[in-house]
Amino acid sequence: MNLNLKIWRQKNSNDKGGMHSYQISDVSPDMSFLEMLDVLNQQLNDKGEEPIAFDHDCREGICGMCSLQINGEPHGPDRGVTTCQLHMRKFNDGDTIYIEPFRAKAFPVIKDLVVDRSAFDRIQHAGGFVSVNTSGNTQDANAIPIPKADADKAFDAATCIGCGACVASCKNASAMLYVSAKVSQFALLPQGKVEAKDRVLNMVKAMDEEGFGNCTNTGACEVECPKGISLENIARMNREYLSASLKK
């Protein structure tokens, strides 16, 4: 496959940046998208040019490190996969592919396609945890009966890998799906209920302070989420938030 690539290049966070065109030939349909970028970077290296910076780590779809807005969609045109699991057979010979960083005011570009997603970490620090007494007499979690349906929903919410595709896909750059998944994974379990009120209030406050947009329920986040996190979590978080605000 021969492809025309339009890639965002930006030297650093202060640089204005812009789209640059690259040609790449003999791309195997069995390559992953990141492997295709590896080949392009090798070619740039060989020519003495600066390689393109992009995020990646496990390349197995579980770490949430890879990002990329590909042809206007986070993680590209395939569903339920991260960029590292996207294969070049999803594209056609001669295609022009736009590759950009995830765009949000709360996700500033560090370099080229690498963005700073530490806003998610700060939201998590605001309440995305269960305080545990580690004195040595902690109750065995398995001794607490939990309905299977609740356990399943909590587990589904906990599969969020925090990649930021929800923010990137949302026309408002809203982080509601991410935050609601982190709220839900605890809100559904007895261990999480003790701190539920403070958790949702603090995490939503932190989300707003980071400058993410507001949710208008378009559902784009759910469609683009590589882990299939459901919009039900946003409704649950809204319920938790309303309830906590009234009891405040």
Partner: peptide, 14 residues
């Protein structure tokens, strides 16, 4: 909340 727009944004896809 999105101070830099995408060069290509496929909103109709999702």
């Amino acid at each position: 909340a999105r101070n830099v727009k995408y060069a290509k944004y496929n909103g109709a896809a999702n």
